[in-house]
């Protein structure tokens, strides 16, 4: 049975424990960043940040402040376009692990040329993969496959203190997403779950995806 994440943004406090824990588990160094007038830092996903919490603020139709947090990561699509495109460039360079549903980059990716890399990156509807020029690899969230294979939850989920993130069997996560959606809709009539059933990461949002992130939803 494949695995899935639940990310209920109506519970997120943007503590960024997930963002930091992801870096630490993958032993990724810090980027030199600057304050640019936003708490969102680093500003985007990059070879050293496979997970970034995005901040978006706007006034709702009643003039109330809405400050939305979006812990962005690979959706581990059920039918990943990136895997198709990568395999056209270099067979076996990306796989979808049948057991967990994790979308993974393999060592063969090093053989990919620039055009192939560009095609793979461009193919992702969520704008997730990044090119690590140093390692000559495509990089992205790997579902903490090492942890998951050892029976542990991904590091971001393990770190989340507010119940925003959950991880488990796809069926269970779908049921949980349904439950959380019903809860959220009591307070947010526009609440929704994004892009089910195409993805393995079920984002619960309080309102339209454009109030979170340009690439929040494929739909």
């Amino acid at each position: 049975m494949p695995k899935a994440f639940l990310i209920d943004t109506t519970r997120c406090t943007a503590c960024r424990g997930c963002q930091i824990a992801c870096k630490e588990w993958h032993d990724l160094p810090a980027n030199a960043t600057k304050q640019r007038g936003s708490h969102q830092n680093p500003p985007d996903l990059n070879p050293y940040n496979l997970k970034v919490v995005r901040f978006h603020e706007h006034l709702d139709d009643q003039g109330r402040v809405m400050w939305n947090f979006f812990p962005d990561q690979c959706r581990h699509c059920v039918k990943p376009i990136c895997v198709t495109m990568a395999n056209k460039a270099v067979p076996g360079s990306m796989i979808k692990d049948p057991k967990t549903g994790a979308v993974l980059v393999t060592e063969k990716c090093r053989e990919m040329d620039e055009a192939g890399v560009k095609t793979v990156i461009k193919s992702c509807p969520y704008n997730i993969p990044r090119w690590d020029a140093e390692k000559k690899m495509l990089v992205k969230c790997d579902m903490c496959i090492d942890r998951v294979q050892a029976g542990l939850p991904p590091m971001c989920v393990k770190t989340c203190p507010t119940g925003t993130m959950a991880f488990g069997e796809r069926d269970e996560m779908l049921a949980l997403a349904k439950k959380r959606l019903a809860e959220a809709q009591k307070r947010f009539p526009k609440a929704r779950v994004l892009d089910v059933p195409e993805v393995s990461v079920f984002f619960v949002l309080a309102e339209e995806p454009e109030h979170y992130h340009e690439y929040a939803s494929f739909g």
């Binding site: 960024r16 963002q19 930091i20 870096k23 630490e24 160094p29 810090a30 980027n31 030199a32 960043t33 600057k34 304050q35 007038g37 708490h39 830092n41 680093p42």
Partner: peptide
């Protein structure tokens, strides 16, 4: 701690 400074690098 570099990872924390990365998230909030400068006075605002």
């Amino acid at each position: 701690v570099p990872n924390l400074l990365e998230a909030e690098p400068q006075l605002y």
